[in-house]
């Protein structure tokens, strides 16, 4: 498990004038699940790639500040070393298939072969990862024969087998159909129970609210807020940042129904059910009274 310290990060892609990340600082404790939200172009993917070391080691560009993954300074660490600690899964499951392996089993082994993991340990890790992601039955299939959701789960398994302390998922479901999305969310839920530090960029706010311990709201490369889902989604200025809250939060905002013990609107289905139950019983009392 690893903690992350992001300190005054600023970054500009090569040949651009605009700061993609503008003086962002935050700390994440080991085992936390951080949701990252914001409009398109707000810097979500760039932040993910900065934590994974792809910025600036792959993209180059103008970089300032520092990111620490435990004791590792990300910008001074080769990606091939950092990938043992920080794993990242991208949007397009198809482009995460190496194309050099004929079976799912071998595909998952690809990263482990590169890291020089001995064969017996490699097999154990692959089996564990496949079981966690529920893709053992596909082990002999060609990776390109899988559906989008299955391919994305294979991509996650490929990274999980490398045993990172931190897992970043950058819009892992955006190119999937509803069934594929649900498969990936179930996989992410299992991951979160393993105690790995997770960052997830998603536009599905219900899932962000359900899984995240805290949520980062970005806008124009700046950190607007970092707080619990309840506090973030209770904000009334979310539309200014191109973000909509979970559907039941919107309904509760319209009815001015807040959770009993906090001054926040419900952000999960369970909280919304409780709030509506209280509201319903109050209405009945008023009717009878």
């Amino acid at each position: 498990m690893a903690g992350i310290i992001v300190k005054n990060i600023k970054y500009k892609y090569p040949a651009t004038d605009r700061l993609a990340l503008d003086d962002i600082s935050f700390t994440v404790e080991p085992g936390e699940f951080i949701g990252i939200i914001g409009r398109n172009g707000s810097g979500k993917s760039t932040l993910c790639q900065a934590i994974a070391g792809l910025v600036p080691n792959f993209y180059k560009g103008a970089y300032g500040g520092s990111i620490l993954v435990d004791d590792l300074v990300v910008k001074d660490t080769e990606i091939s070393d950092l990938c043992k600690r920080v794993g990242i899964v991208f949007q397009n499951p198809f482009n995460q298939v190496t194309g050099s392996k004929m079976t799912v089993y071998e595909e998952i082994a690809f990263g482990l072969e590169n890291l020089g993991i001995p064969k017996p340990e490699m097999i154990q890790r692959i089996d564990d990862a496949m079981e966690l992601l529920d893709i053992s039955r596909f082990k002999d299939r060609n990776p390109f024969d899988l559906s989008g959701g299955q391919m994305q789960r294979m991509a996650i398994a490929s990274i999980i087998a490398m045993k990172p302390d931190v897992m970043i998922l950058d819009e892992p479901t955006s190119q999937l159909d509803p069934q594929g999305r649900e498969e990936v969310f179930q996989a992410v839920h299992k991951l979160s129970q393993q105690g790995i530090t997770i960052f997830m960029v998603e536009h599905n706010m219900e899932k962000i609210a359900e899984y995240s311990s805290r949520v980062i709201l970005l806008d124009d490369g700046k950190l607007v807020a970092l707080d619990t889902p309840g506090k973030i989604f209770s904000r009334m200025d979310l539309p200014e940042y191109g973000v909509t809250e979970p559907a039941f939060t919107t309904i509760c905002k319209g009815l001015h129904l807040k959770c009993k013990n906090t001054d926040e609107y419900p952000v999960t289905l369970k909280e919304a059910e409780e709030v509506f139950r209280v509201y319903q019983s109050q209405k009945e009392e008023n009717r009878n009274g």
């Binding site: 080769e78 990938c83 043992k84 397009n92 490699m122 990274i159 490398m162």
Partner: peptide, 25 residues
């Protein structure tokens, strides 16, 4: 675009690691 994304995916799976590689098969 696909090539760039695939290159990123290879990078984060240690493709450019300098240690001695092992083999599943």
């Amino acid at each position: 675009i696909n090539t760039k994304e695939r290159a990123l995916a290879l990078e984060v799976r240690g493709f450019n690691a300098t240690n001695k590689k092992t083999f599943l098969n």
